[in-house]
Amino acid sequence: MPLTFTFEPAISPDLRDGILDLWTDVTNAGGSVGFVPPVTREDIRPELVRHMVAMAEGRTRLLVGHDEEGRVAATAFLALNTHRLMTHWLWLYTVMVHPRHQGRGYGRDLMATAADAARGLDGIEAIRLTCRGGLGLEDFYASCGYKEVGRVPEAIRVAPGDDRDDITMLLPLL
């Protein structure tokens, strides 16, 4: 059964806790979402609070996918640019699908829904995202229509002696 996506949902304690659980589970499964495992909910909470503040300030939008049981199963955050010369594109951050739902095409569904949501925002012509090299993520995003537009070698230090490329990708929406 496909996920049910909602763009800019009402934030409730259940949704907040669901995102926190998702982020923790994705990270601990090896996902590249800003942390290195092992993590706890308390490790993730300050970053989620920063995302929520940006949402409250109108700088970031949330796309969330729920599974058939109503659990948070996927997210993506769309961050608007505040620089006056770059307001025609936005950043896609913290793209996650719960490990129990991976391999079913939900990641592609999430990316397509995020692109549709961005197209619905006034003046947005492209989406940029970054991903950590070494995991094949750039191949997944390329299969969703994104093009690699930049790479900083060894910019992400996952652990001592384990440096990864920081890859920037772009999806034109026009």
Rank of each mutant, 00 (worst) to 15 (best):
residue 50 R to L: 15
residue 7 F to C: 10
residue 5 F to H: 04
residue 63 L to A: 05
residue 56 A to Y: 13
residue 86 M to H: 12
residue 147 K to A: 15
residue 124 I to H: 00
residue 71 R to C: 06
residue 156 I to P: 04
residue 122 D to V: 02
residue 45 R to L: 10
residue 67 D to H: 04
residue 31 G to E: 07
residue 128 R to M: 09
residue 49 V to E: 12
residue 55 M to I: 15
residue 88 H to M: 03
residue 125 E to R: 14
residue 146 Y to R: 10
residue 138 E to A: 01
residue 109 D to W: 04
residue 147 K to C: 08
residue 18 G to Q: 04
residue 85 L to G: 13
residue 62 L to K: 08
residue 82 T to Y: 11
residue 165 D to K: 14
residue 4 T to G: 01
residue 90 L to E: 00
residue 126 A to H: 04
residue 30 G to C: 08
residue 56 A to C: 00
residue 85 L to N: 15
residue 56 A to K: 14
residue 28 N to C: 07
residue 130 T to H: 01
residue 171 L to H: 14
residue 38 P to H: 07
residue 58 G to M: 03
residue 133 G to K: 11
residue 59 R to A: 15
residue 92 L to P: 02
residue 141 Y to T: 12
residue 102 Q to I: 12
residue 148 E to A: 09
residue 109 D to T: 08
residue 60 T to Q: 11
residue 173 L to C: 08
residue 156 I to E: 03
residue 170 L to M: 14
residue 19 I to L: 11
residue 174 L to T: 15
residue 85 L to E: 07
residue 150 G to K: 13
residue 19 I to E: 00
residue 106 Y to P: 05
residue 32 S to K: 02
residue 55 M to E: 09
residue 83 H to T: 11
residue 150 G to R: 14
residue 106 Y to K: 07
residue 74 A to K: 07
residue 22 L to I: 06
residue 54 A to G: 06
residue 138 E to T: 05
residue 86 M to W: 12
residue 88 H to W: 08
residue 16 R to Q: 06
residue 120 G to V: 10
residue 44 I to Y: 01
residue 120 G to E: 04
residue 87 T to C: 01
residue 5 F to N: 08
residue 66 H to P: 06
residue 72 V to A: 06
residue 4 T to D: 11
residue 117 A to N: 00
residue 165 D to N: 10
residue 145 G to T: 05
residue 65 G to C: 02
residue 17 D to P: 04
residue 63 L to I: 03
residue 33 V to H: 00
residue 25 D to S: 12
residue 108 R to T: 13
